[in-house]
């Protein structure tokens, strides 16, 4: 408990997490408002239902990737990781506490992005298909909580492995925003690989753009994909903690 408390103080005693959080929420919610104000939807043709309100969540997710990676790499950058390990010599404990204290705000940001985007769209351009009726609808909106939380865990794991802000941020963003998309361009094997990529899995859990024909024959269902995404994040985190235990601080 005391370790969690220490990590909480660390997180909240600098201003950058607040700015990141603000950015992570304001960017997608603000742009969603812009979309809502321009959208001209005929009743009945909004086939995508509530998904249309969540299309910009990836912006918030990208900011969370950066924020979570920074929370560990900045400790290496400023040498405070040594104080951390000096106070809590069990590195796994210290790093798990940090993971918890980073993942929880990420989940709150996810909630704000998911429900905020949905609410702002509803407020500006309300139509019946936007109601949260089915389990699928709820997954698309409330599911952001879990996706943002797991995204933060994955980013922390990568940060622990790379320990260097520029490298970790570049790897995470290029991977999430470019690699996963480009792999689909590889003929024959591309699709099969893509079906097992973590952020692809996260999007399938949320059910974004589910009506595209390439996405019909998927190996897992939405909850299976969430479990898979969580398992990948957990594996990366475990690798990060192991590497931190083995290397000199």
């Amino acid at each position: 408990m005391s370790v969690l408390n220490a990590e909480r103080i660390k997180l909240l005693s600098t201003r950058s997490p607040w700015w990141c959080a603000l950015l992570a929420i304001a960017l997608p919610v603000g742009l969603t408002a812009l979309i809502a104000s321009q959208a001209q939807i005929q009743p009945g043709d909004a086939g995508n239902g509530v998904y249309i309100t969540q299309m910009l969540s990836s912006l918030g997710r990208a900011v969370v990737l950066v924020m979570a990676a920074l929370s560990i790499t900045s400790e290496y950058r400023f040498g405070t990781i040594r104080s951390t390990f000096q106070v809590v010599p069990h590195r796994a404990t210290a790093l798990l506490a940090k993971t918890a204290v980073t993942a929880i705000p990420a989940m709150l940001i996810g909630a704000a992005v998911g429900f905020g985007s949905w609410a702002v769209f509803q407020a500006i351009n309300s139509f019946p298909e936007l109601a949260l009726d089915t389990a699928q609808d709820w997954r698309a909106v409330a599911g952001q909580v879990l996706v943002f939380g797991i995204t933060a865990v994955l980013a922390l794991g990568v940060g622990m492995l790379i320990r260097q802000t520029a490298g970790a941020v570049a790897v995470l963003l290029v991977y999430a925003l470019l690699v996963e998309g480009l792999i689909g361009l590889i003929p024959k094997i591309g699709d099969d690989i893509q079906h097992w990529l973590p952020f692809f899995a996260a999007d399938r859990f949320l059910g974004l753009q589910d009506d595209i024909p390439q996405l019909r024959d998927l190996p897992l269902g939405p909850w299976g994909y969430l479990a898979y995404f969580a398992a990948v994040a957990a594996a990366v985190l475990a690798a990060g903690i192991l590497s931190a235990q083995r290397r000199d601080a």
């Binding site: 979309i35 321009q38 910009l56 900011v63």
Partner: peptide, 27 residues
């Protein structure tokens, strides 16, 4: 600042430029 610059330089071309298309009408 490395983190800020890299984030902007990657998120802009890879995400923002594509997402603006979603804005109906003017996108």
């Amino acid at each position: 600042q490395s983190a800020g610059a890299i984030s902007i330089l990657l998120i802009w071309p890879l995400l923002v430029e594509n997402l603006v298309q979603l804005i109906p009408g003017i996108g």
